[in-house]
Design a protein around this nucleic acid. Structure first.
Lengths: 245, 245
DNA sequence: CGTTTAGTTGACCGTGCTCAAGGGGCGTGG
DNA sequence: CCACGCCCCTTGAGCACGGTCAACTAAACG
């Protein structure tokens, strides 16, 4: 494993640590397992498809992905973004079939751990088992918040809320640079994530720009006034369950 | 524990068994734990409030509940329904704070199991641990499907989809009577669950009635043509991950 | 260079919201 | 026993948020 991957592995540890404290032994075991099998994928690839039999866990070292599902008639809905440090589905191998797909938005580097090997890890260190369990609970909480976002927020609030969420999720993995972060999500993806049309996403983003809340260009997001954006979005970070506030 | 509770306990076992096969020892341990502490709640009570520290697991023996969250300005969104046989949050005691509330829709009978006692159960029987883990995964899958429902289905499809989901979730716990089931959800709750207004929910239900797809009155839902309703809703049951189809 | 992908703009339209009023069933208290 | 209030459902009218369709620009890429 070469240096950038090592740095990214540290991001994974930081992320889990932000949810629950890891033991040194747990960290060592996890880092070792990650080092055993590191893979790469290009942008726009399906890493997992609906209908696949899940049999392994993927820990994202770098890059962004989406979980999504497509209706028979082509309508697509993104149900979540998978960010660096996130684990794709600890435990999902208990199900016999994937009910959704996972695609890369950017080039992605990830560690792959077979189900049995992953179970070993959890059994060997209680702090790891807890951390992954909590990660799952937080993913559920995020999913619930998306339901609220789609159900009860208007377009402007909705997009603002999504931006706040991504920003705050990038913080514990050290991917913020001041008020800015990478933002490889196209307006089309944003539309599929917020249940809006591309046209309306475009107009909504322009409104956020006009209000001087954000700068979004060349795949970089800058939030000029985070407090104001959160206020507009009715954003409360409690559902992310981060230890350090 | 008297007879109706015993019958309801069997529903819990049936439900978990539909997700993953339980061992006899696991069933016995679970039934015993449920019998230790059975409680009742009236309709319209908050069983759990946002901000509470979670410290126990609740297994619903009978009655319906909602998980919901309220925005600062009063807008409310129901993120899920909790049905008989469901377990309120195995593992959620790992988090320090509830990020949403749970309220009863009807009178509810439920078993309460302290976190430590619940961990004992899981540790003692692997099939129980797996079944509860799978229940959690299925709850996540349902949550994802709600995002799709709110994001990409129009009102008519959306309500139809919710009706199909509830119907199919009641099946494994034996709460269907032919084409009918109890349906204690008011149109206001339906509105908060689907992200629509009460007025529009009312009109949409009338359209389903006019198309002869459903009968909904006196808290009872009858689905005249389940196949047609599923078709209209673009409903595919794969996300419920039930073993017997 | 042509082609593709992402972003932008305009015009028009429709789904679903808001506001407002009224009806029916049921429990409670006078 | 009736009256009242409350909850839930229903209906009408007008409107707005966001969708659709279409065209155009700019950058990226082979």
């Amino acid at each position: 494993m070469h240096s950038p991957d090592l740095k990214n592995t540290q991001a994974v540890v930081r992320r889990l640590n932000a949810l629950a404290p890891l033991s040194d032994a747990g960290i060592a075991a996890l880092v070792k397992a990650i080092g055993e099998r590191t893979l790469r994928a290009g942008p726009g690839e399906d890493l997992v498809c609906e209908g696949d039999r899940p049999d392994r866990v993927r820990i994202i070292l770098s890059g962004w992905l989406t979980r999504y599902k497509t209706l028979e008639d082509g309508r697509r809905q993104i149900v979540n973004f998978v960010l660096p440090g996130d684990t794709c589905d600890p435990q999902i191998y208990l199900l016999r079939q994937m009910d959704h797909s996972i695609a890369t938005l950017t080039p992605v580097v990830y560690a792959e751990i077979e189900a049995a090997r992953f179970e070993e890890l959890l059994a060997a260190d209680r702090s790891l088992a807890e951390a992954f369990q909590i990660e799952m609970l937080v993913t559920m909480a995020v999913q619930r918040e998306w339901v609220i976002n789609l159900g009860r927020r208007v377009a402007l609030e909705r997009i603002a809320h999504l931006l706040c969420e991504i920003f705050e999720r990038l913080r514990p993995v050290g991917l913020l640079e001041g008020q800015s972060c990478a933002f490889p999500i196209t307006q089309m993806d944003l539309a599929d994530a917020t249940g809006l049309s591309v046209v309306h996403v475009n107009r909504t983003i322009q409104e956020l720009r006009a209000n001087n809340l954000i700068v979004l260009r060349e795949r970089t997001l800058t939030i000029n006034d985070l407090a104001a954006l959160k206020n507009l979005a009715l954003f409360l970070p409690n559902y992310l369950h981060l230890r350090a506030e």
